[in-house]
Each structure stands twice: as structure tokens, then as C-alpha cells.
Design a protein around this nucleic acid. Structure first.
Lengths: 257, 257
DNA sequence: CGTTCCCTTGAGTAGTTTCAATACTTGTGG
DNA sequence: CCACAAGTATTGAAACTACTCAAGGGAACG
């Protein structure tokens, strides 16, 4: 079919096709894209709640998320805290490469597919092609920017807004990697997951969801958010996507233009 | 004096002597250290509350903090949120180099001294010496790890514990860059500053401080924390310094050994 | 020596937690 | 197809945590 073959031409990278999509990707040359794709040694399927890498463990591979969603979690006592969320195209544990061990665990939410990248491969490639170091550095800076926004979200927003913010971010990040925006945003979150992302109790997460429904902003059922007005939801959550650095001019891009 | 000249020999880097101290610094060779030191074009003194770089502005220099403390702040409405804290040796706005603009402002707390580093210099040096890219990448990963801990802190801890955690982190980070640990930790924080770091109101910050005194864990007067038992304070705040990656084996270090 | 921050305290309100009980879903085996 | 179990979602009540508004006290600085 015409559409399919077009897609083939524009996106021959089955595994890493979403890597830095919406950001630096359009400025990477064919060679660099091929290099990143070549890093993936093999694929791995994960079922729900499967731990890809555990906190404090020494690691010798990294993974790029191809399909599905993943959490960054820290267990403390018998409680779990979620400190980050990942969408396809994200290098989920790249920092393990440079830091040697992880300060948190990487866990799937729902089924997921990852590409496994041996550290050795990154190492060799970076020596052969120094620009790759810049690219990976850049990717981890995006993570840090998202972390900062979460900090502000936790400092500024009440529970219903936090939940709305999480979904707004997810929607925008998925859009950046090519998922069209619809009225329903499907996610395999339980209310416990939402609570652990927002730093609130599960019961309160439930009431916060009720508040969003009450306000007519969104309905959330079994993780899926339904809204007829994303703009209103974003405004309510004080969501400003600037921190995701979509389509902004980047240093690396400028150097090449 | 003997001590002084020893210090001279071991630490000829007046401006960047604290860069990555306690972490990767001991694995950097003389040449790399000299390169980093050479990046600093000039020094700049900052008085209290001075904005070094403003959110959303395009930037063409970065800065390394030499002396004093700085905040990463985001203004929203007429409220200020503090999303990060920096100690001497930190590259405070390195991400501006790769991302082109900042998602937050960098502001001094008390007087501070920074070394100004033109992006152009970093650019040139990185091409000449690719290992520098690794080193800078590593530095920004440490920032991200600290961000994650702040997220968990905000999710897990109540107000008095948050304040205690902030001081425990500050104490440990200062110790890493060579400041000896004492019973008094001097910081130019107002209670508003503490409130904005903890995501609570200033009034509540005051009461949280009162609680720490009540518990016999610490006294905080005009930003300075006095405690006779750091271990007890750390335990109370559930502070575990692992996320600061002090003295752990690092990939880059291993490659060279 | 007064102005300006900064800190402290009180009272009432709003947001959040915990515990506990009940209902709804989904998947499984009978 | 039904019964059941396990996980998930919902609701109520009481207790706690944190917020706002407001007023007064204290320290630093010109």
C-alpha cells in the first residue's frame, strides 16, 4: 500500500524509531540513526509489573522503550514511590551506563517491549563516533527537565491537578512520538499507580478523580482518561509543555545548520 | 606554611577545584582538570538573590559555582518554586549548553562567586577532547539523580522531615567538596526559602522548624541549622546518601583502570 | 530610631490520611 | 454459564496535616 511504503521510507527504524522524536531526531543524520538502531542487541517483552532493572544493582545493559509504558520506582519501607514515567522512544536506564548502578528501579506498567543495548556497544560506538555522546547526553537532559517539572508539580498543585498534569504530560509526550491525540488517553494505570506518582494516598486519588469528573474536565476509568476538552484540562493543571523542549532550536542542531 | 603549600600542590585549581569532588574528580587526569579550569573565562560575584540566568532566555554561557549557594527556581503566577539547590563545584546551568534555553532560573542565595564559561569554549574543547563530553554528561546525571530524590522526598515526607532532609543533603554535598562537618550548618536561607524548597507555606515551615526543635533533633535560626546528632537527624529524615553517588565505582573510572 | 524584613503565634478552614466497609471487574476453574 | 477469588474502585467518618488570614514581636540596616 502507498501509505505503508511511505512509512517504510521515512521510518526504517523499527526499534528506535521514536528515539528523540519531536526533539533532536530530525537533526540526526542517517548514519547516526543507523548507529542508534544498531545498538539494540535484542528485544525483550515485559509483562505487567515486571522489573527491568533493580535499584542498587550493577548493570551492564541499558534499554530503550519501544512499546508500552514504564515507571521509575523507589521502594522505601513497604511503600513504593514513582519518580518518573517513560514513553516509547525513551532510553529508560541510560544513566546506569555512566553511573554504573541505578538509584531506582525500572518497572513496566502493562505489557511493554524494550530494546536491550549492551553498555559495551555504547562504549565502542561513542569512541568511534563522538557525536553520539552529545546525543545521549541530550536525551538524559530531557529526563532531568521532566524531573524538575515533577518537583514543581508536587510543590504547587493539589491532588486533582496533579493527576490532570500527569495525563497532560503523557498526552503531549505520546504526541511527540507520533501518537495522535484523541479524546481517550489509554493507560494501564491503577489508582494506586496514580497515587504513587502524585504522592497521595490511593483513597485520595480516587476522590481527586471524582473531583475532575465533578468539574466536567475528565473521566478516568481503569487508567484511561476521557476528556472532551484537552485545552481546559491543561489550563486547570497549569500545564505548560515548554519543559518538554519540543521543536525548539537546539545547540547541536545549530552547529550543523 | 607547610599545609598551605601542600594544598597548593594538591589543588592548583582555584576556580574549579570542587568540580566533581568526591565523585569522578579523582579519576580525571591532570590534562582534563586543566581543561575544565581553562574553560572559565572570568569570575563573577553575585549578591543575594541575584539572577544569573533567567528561565526561557537563550543563553550562550554556562557557570560553575565556586563559592556560595544557588537555587534553581521557577516562577508561576506570583509564586516562586525552588526545584534545586547548588553547592560549590556544581555546573549550575550546564544543560543550557545543550538545550539552548533554560526551563528555570538560576538565582543566588546569599553572596556567591561563579566562574563564567562561554558555550563556545565548551564546544571547542569537546571536539578537541571527547572525554570531556563524558565528564560533563556525568555531572548532569548527578543533578538528575538529586532531582529524583527530591521527587521522592516530596512524595514521602511530611514538612519537618522535608526540612531535615534538605539540610542532610546540603551537609553531605558540602562534605563531598571538602567542607568539614560541624554541629552548625550555616546557610543563608530564610524560612520562605525553606518553604519554597519543601512545597509548603512559610507559616508551616516555621511550625515544622518548631517541631524539629521540640523533638530535640535540630534548631534552625536564620537559616543556620544546629544539631548535636547528625545521625539522628538523618534517620528522622530517612536520608540515605546513596543517590549522591559518592565514592562509588564509575564506568569512566573503570575504563581507565 | 524607625523602617523593613523576617520570624512567631493564634484561630478557623481546607486538603489529606487512615481505617473500615462495601461494591464493582476481571479472570479462572467448575 | 456460574461461582468464586483477587484485585480494583468507591464511600463514610474521624483524625491529622497544612493553608490562609491576621496580628504582633524581633533583628538587622540605614
Amino acid at each position: 500500500m502507498f501509505l505503508e511504503s511511505t512509512a517504510q521510507v521515512e521510518r526504517p527504524y523499527d526499534l528506535t524509531g521514536d528515539f528523540l522524536a519531536g526533539r533532536l531526531r530530525k537533526h540526526l543524520d542517517q548514519d547516526e540513526l543507523a548507529c542508534v538502531e544498531g545498538l539494540v542487541a535484542h528485544e525483550r517483552m515485559l509483562s505487567d509489573q515486571e522489573v527491568l532493572a533493580r535499584r542498587a544493582e550493577r548493570v551492564d545493559t541499558a534499554s530503550i522503550l519501544i512499546e508500552g509504558l514504564m515507571f521509575r520506582t523507589i521502594e522505601s519501607g513497604n511503600q513504593r514511590f514513582i519518580v518518573g514515567l517513560h514513553v516509547p522512544g525513551d532510553f529508560v536506564d541510560l544513566h546506569g551506563f555512566a553511573l554504573g548502578r541505578l538509584d531506582h528501579s525500572i518497572v513496566s506498567v502493562g505489557t511493554a517491549r524494550v530494546g536491550v543495548v549492551p553498555h559495551l556497544g555504547i562504549e565502542r560506538l561513542m569512541q568511534k563516533r563522538p557525536s553520539l555522546a552529545r546525543i545521549l547526553w541530550f536525551a538524559s537532559l530531557l529526563d532531568a527537565a521532566i524531573h524538575r517539572q515533577w518537583i514543581q508539580m508536587l510543590e504547587q498543585l493539589d491532588a486533582p491537578r496533579r493527576i490532570a498534569h500527569i495525563y497532560c504530560e503523557l498526552q503531549t509526550r505520546l504526541e511527540l512520538v507520533g501518537k495522535p491525540s484523541t479524546r481517550a488517553l489509554r493507560a494501564p494505570f491503577t489508582q494506586y499507580d496514580l497515587a504513587d506518582m502524585c504522592g497521595i494516598s490511593a483513597v485520595h486519588a480516587n476522590r481527586a478523580i471524582g473531583r475532575l469528573r465533578e468539574l466536567g474536565l475528565a473521566q478516568i476509568r481503569r487508567g484511561t482518561l476521557y476528556t472532551s476538552d484537552w485545552a481546559a484540562l491543561r489550563q486547570y493543571a497549569r500545564f505548560d509543555s515548554a519543559y518538554l523542549y519540543a521543536d525548539t532550536p537546539f545547540k547541536l542542531a545549530e552547529m550543523r545548520s
